[in-house]
Design a protein around this nucleic acid. Structure first.
Lengths: 332, 332
DNA sequence: ATGTTTTTGGGAACCGGTTCCAAATAATCT
DNA sequence: AGATTATTTGGAACCGGTTCCCAAAAACAT
């Protein structure tokens, strides 16, 4: 591999001149020509490490994700990547595999690798996280969770939960179940549930609401939904994620409950398949990709020292489809 | 930020001694203690760039993916990441966004960043690719496509295609359609089709086979499937991906064709949702995650100069579920 | 032609580690 | 004890760039 010194020697100039040529300093037309030719002939590319060593920074943005096989993650990453590329940064993905310890580790590793900034698709923010953020001297942006000490971008899960809860209540459902996940995930486990609960509370006289809990796995969700149908038999089931809704639909099918005639089911997320399944799923579409782009914007602004809001919200929208029926029992 | 020189000064020893301590050279117990204490107090971490500058290599494996929002990609990445972590390497993901030009660019960028090796989840291998592989001086492993010049790991799409084709033919179907993608994707567009075609040819007397083409998008697939039902009305439809199968099922529903009573449909890939949908989808389950692990093994062996086969195959298995019916028309 | 300003080029130091080599010290053997 | 060998240590060079500073050359003004 050729080095800048080699190029300089071949071109008959000093290292510094080549460096200046590479970085747009003042070099005469003639030397420019000479150097350019040598570089083309040798196929020289500068060593990124030597550059970063001096620069003490890179144009890499580290993105830490809890898992890779999730629609939300993929879409968000696509958004981040797309925008970052426009802004002339690179994205480095670090997968924590749903292990908080590895998440923390990744923060330090990225810092050591001199990432210019870190985007963390968070599920929870622990003291160890905060400790890490304070230790490393790099801008950090939280996506999907918030914390007052850190710049955050969240999906406004509570308002979205409220919207879907309200919608179901207004369709005349009287027995409504919510199938969520544990509170370890603040956005999904706490906020979505809270929003739904708030909406249903406003209809407390007419509706009976019950809240259940499962995991993010479709299979677990299917099992839990079956139990839930037995012990509560709701006319509508609001699920905290689209995957949970898939499981619930499977359960309904096994129980010979027709969606939406016997039971209405809703999801949360807006995965592409929700449109293709039958019946198509009413869900809350969260603009993950857009959120990713926004995250990229925010982190780069943070790096440049520009001002951004400490807390920002991404958009969502209710997608009304076939899996929800209107209930007119009360009119009979 | 503290440097190794600072640590050395504080501990009252030479830089080289600290370096030796860090890298397990011979250092007396006493100096070890002193240095360790200083490091703990200062929270020193070595600068990764300075290290790599001398080492001329990193422990990063670059992985180039065509797209992020694909089940196959996600699962493969998980496998790679998992195994790489065990082997003490890091994975750096570069998303080409289905743009071949960006794919080539990524190869050079990764080389410049001194990745120890490159895993390319390929869709096609062009001359520009080969040119890039030859230029950079880094081991490369192709996953999903093969080329004689490069180490490759493929999913044996042809055999898998043969298996599913045979299965459908043996279930007594007489009019069989295949819905695939263009030949630009060798694995999916050419090999899967070829395998299916081969199997159907072996039943040429009884079955009439027709081959159709669409894109990877569910929506496109749904449209194409509708047309196909009109002009050919097969009793079985073999789809080249699970996503295409989703689209086809939607189309069947729109056309009031019941799956599997009126039409049998099969997928390819083995996504998790295929089990949850109704009817559950008969498909070829490709062990993407396992393939990812295998890829990680192979690339690291390549880096260490160990011997690996030029071409390896990942496993697959037929997953028989509800979306295929047996046809007994010919027995009537 | 001479003085002044602007360009251009070269030398050397620096970034923060690793590694080679030789000196100093400690341990082992006659 | 003296010689020999093994272990620790420090100094210096090196990895491949960037940048500062000053000298030489060119361009311009008087």
């Amino acid at each position: 591999m050729k080095t800048i010194a080699d190029i300089a020697k071949i071109a008959g100039v000093a290292k510094s001149t080549v460096s200046r040529f590479l970085n747009g300093g003042s070099v005469s037309e003639e030397t420019k020509r000479k150097i350019e030719q040598v570089i083309n002939e040798t196929g020289y590319t500068p060593n990124a490490f030597a550059q970063s060593l001096k620069a003490k920074q890179t144009n890499m943005i580290g993105t830490i994700v809890p898992r890779l096989d999730s629609y939300a993650t993929s879409r968000t990453l696509m958004g981040i990547d797309e925008r970052l590329r426009e802004l002339n940064y690179h994205m480095l993905i670090s997968n924590a595999g749903q292990d908080l310890h590895r998440e923390i580790e990744s923060i330090y590793t990225l810092a050591k690798q001199k990432a210019a900034g870190i985007i963390l698709l968070a599920t929870q923010v622990t003291d160890a996280h905060l400790q890490a953020f304070r230790t490393i001297d790099i801008p950090v942006l939280l996506v999907g969770q918030q914390h007052e000490e850190v710049y955050s971008l969240i999906h406004d899960d509570e308002t979205a939960g409220y919207a879907i809860g309200k919608y179901i209540a207004q369709r005349g459902h009287k027995k409504i179940a919510f199938l969520g996940v544990g509170e370890y995930d603040v956005a999904v486990g706490v906020k979505r549930k809270k929003g739904v609960a708030q909406a249903l509370r406003e209809h407390a006289e007419e509706v009976e609401a019950r809240f259940f809990e499962t995991t993010f796995s479709m299979t677990d969700a299917a099992e839990k939904a079956e139990q839930l149908f037995d012990e509560f038999s709701p006319s509508a089931l609001i699920c905290a994620t689209d995957n949970i809704a898939f499981g619930a639909m499977k359960a309904a099918y096994r129980k010979k409950q027709y969606v939406p005639k016997d039971i209405s089911i809703t999801g949360f997320g807006g995965y592409e398949v929700t449109a293709m399944m039958h019946p198509s799923l009413t869900t809350v579409h969260i603009h993950f990709k857009e959120a990713g782009q926004m995250a990229a914007d925010h982190i780069t602004k943070l790096i440049k020292g520009e001002d951004i809001p400490k807390l920002a919200y991404s958009r969502f929208e209710l997608v009304l489809r076939e899996s929800v029926d209107i209930r007119t029992d009360h009119l009979l």
